[in-house]
């Protein structure tokens, strides 16, 4: 069996910044692909991803269908210290939601 599909965050404290990597579990159907029987698969894709550090919203990502399957993002946050809580939330076009959080150590 494969790994259970779930959203993952990895954070790493560096000299004066925190590196954040996100891997979301989402099929990201564009609405143009076909299944085995030749029917179009309806579009299902993440539209909005938000990232918080503690209580501050630091980044908003708006996605179209051209974001790859199981979206991956990596970025740096200036500063940061041990014990910071990094939270992400996403919403797709069907209204499905996901959330993940981690603590910087």
């Amino acid at each position: 069996m494969g790994l259970e599909a779930k959203d993952r965050i990895r954070v790493k404290l560096k000299e004066n910044e925190t590196s954040v990597r996100l891997l979301l579990a989402h099929p990201m159907h564009t609405g143009r692909a076909k299944n085995e029987t030749g029917e179009l698969i309806a579009a299902v894709f993440i539209q909005d991803i938000r990232c918080w550090r503690n209580d501050d919203q630091v980044l908003t990502i708006k996605c179209g269908t051209a974001t790859a399957r199981n979206p991956y993002f990596s970025f740096q946050l200036l500063g940061g210290q041990q014990g910071d809580k990094i939270t992400i939330r996403w919403v797709d076009n069907m209204g499905a939601k996901g959330t993940a959080e981690t603590i910087v150590r």
């Binding site: 908003t60 990502i61 708006k62 179209g64 051209a66 970025f75 200036l78």
Partner: peptide, 20 residues
């Protein structure tokens, strides 16, 4: 349009992602 990112002052590059 593949993606649009709204930055705040604390976000720093490099930014990496995957697109179709």
């Amino acid at each position: 349009l593949a993606m649009s990112l709204d930055f705040t002052a604390v976000v720093n590059l490099p930014f990496k992602s995957m697109i179709k």
